[in-house]
Amino acid sequence: MLDLHKLEQSIDEALASETTESLTEWLLNQRDRNLSAFLGDGYFEALAPTSIIFKQNTNSVLTTVETCDIPNDYQLAA
């Protein structure tokens, strides 16, 4: 038979013994551990930066123009 009173007592005692520092450190360790578990074993490799240069040899640009007739005299709406 599960003793709920003992379970509650153990939580209350654990919380009562915590300080801001101890709790923060424990939480951050948990997050670090979870991140390591997600990423798996390994290490980060520093990669050399790469860059790409685009060079334009001509100034000509292809464009399309669409035109439509627009009347100059607008009628006022009634």
Binding site: D3, S10, T24, W26, L27, Q30
Partner: peptide, 28 residues
């Protein structure tokens, strides 16, 4: 209590890991 002390909201795994590990529920 954790939020009040640390200003950090615990995740589902953290609150349960706290019960198991820090409150020693795994023994109870």
């Amino acid at each position: 209590y954790i939020i009040k002390k640390t200003n950090i909201k615990p995740t589902i795994s953290e609150i349960n890991q706290y019960f198991k590990e820090k409150a020693k529920w795994e023994n109870l």
